[in-house]
Each structure stands twice: as structure tokens, then as C-alpha cells.
Design a binder for these strands. Structure first.
Length: 156
DNA sequence: GCCAACGTTGGC
DNA sequence: GCCAACGTTGGC
């Protein structure tokens, strides 16, 4: 039996890169991740995995769309670009410190599922993004929570 | 604009 | 290896 696809939650600020940008471009390199835990989660992603697109620093913040992993194990080019805010002088091309994945647009939901609503429906154990102070921009979503999220998002 | 949470850095 | 200082995230 094939391994079941995993689900993720990935944050981005809509003013910087939101669901509108992704819908327009079709796919995007999820670059600029400079947190080891988030990077390590990306390393465990497989092609076909799905990710909920979460708008952070938005009014209100919440889940707005669905993406699919289309390419894995890519070197993040911004770490070598001195003009980039994500430039990392300590990372060497022969041993890149940061990598990323490519994500494809799947769906934009009719209504955003706000953080307030998420807090009503999920505990911090079931969906870590609702935990106060959680700054990690990439989080795993359990299969049960993913199915519940999809049901809630389709209902809206 | 404030500030809680928390990862990272650097002195020792 | 400890931990204080610092910087960043991101909700409010």
C-alpha cells in the first residue's frame, strides 16, 4: 500500500506572499525559511503532500487555501543572494544550509477559516497553530485534523 | 504600537 | 555548556 499523503500548515503574510500570488503564479518556491525546525519539516515532505495556506499577520489571520507539494529537496537560492533579506553568509554553496520545496496551487477557499474559529474547533494538541505564541511557520497537521479542516472549509 | 513567546548569539 | 541579551514572529 502506498504511504498516505501527509498534511501541513504553512504560514505566509498576505502582504508579502499570499494566496493571490500563488493562484496567479501556479507554483512557488517556498524560500526564505531560516528556522531549523521548519526546514527539517520541509525535508520530510513528499511530492503529493498537501499544505494548508495560512495567512499570518492578516486581519483576521487564518486558513485561506490549499497547496500541494510538487518538488522537494531544492536548494534555497536566496541564501546565496547578497541582495536578499534571507542572505546567509555562513552558508557555502558546497554545503547549503537551507533548502526548500516547491508548492502548487490547489484551491482557494470561499471564506477564510479564522484563527478564532480554529481555536473553537481544535485544541492546541490537535492543531498546534492555535497554541498561543506559536511562531513556527511550518507545522504538521494530523490526518484527523486535516479531514476536519477540509470539512469545515468546504462548508463555509 | 505593544508585548508574549521563543530561537539565536556570544561572552564567559 | 550556561545563560543573559537580543532579535523576530505574529496576535492583539
Amino acid at each position: 500500500m502506498p504511504k498516505a499523503m501527509a498534511h501541513w500548515l504553512m504560514k505566509s503574510e498576505p502582504d508579502v506572499y499570499g494566496i493571490d500570488h500563488l493562484e496567479r503564479e501556479g507554483t512557488t518556491l517556498w524560500d526564505g525559511i531560516r528556522n531549523y525546525q521548519a526546514r527539517n519539516y520541509m525535508r520530510t515532505m513528499a511530492i503529493g503532500d498537501r499544505a494548508f495556506f495560512y495567512h499570518s499577520n492578516a486581519k483576521p489571520p487564518g486558513i485561506i487555501g490549499l497547496m500541494q507539494v510538487v518538488e522537494t529537496g531544492l536548494v534555497d537560492p536566496s541564501q546565496f543572494d547578497p541582495a536578499s533579506k534571507y542572505f546567509d553568509g555562513a552558508s557555502k554553496p558546497e554545503a547549503p544550509r537551507w533548502d526548500c520545496v516547491r508548492l502548487g496551487f490547489l484551491e482557494r477557499f470561499d471564506a477564510l477559516l479564522s484563527l478564532d474559529q480554529l481555536r473553537q474547533e481544535f485544541s492546541a494538541e490537535d492543531l498546534p497553530v492555535v497554541r498561543q505564541g506559536n511562531r513556527l511557520s511550518i507545522l504538521p497537521v494530523s490526518e484527523a485534523s486535516a479531514q476536519k479542516l477540509l470539512a469545515l472549509l468546504k462548508l463555509a
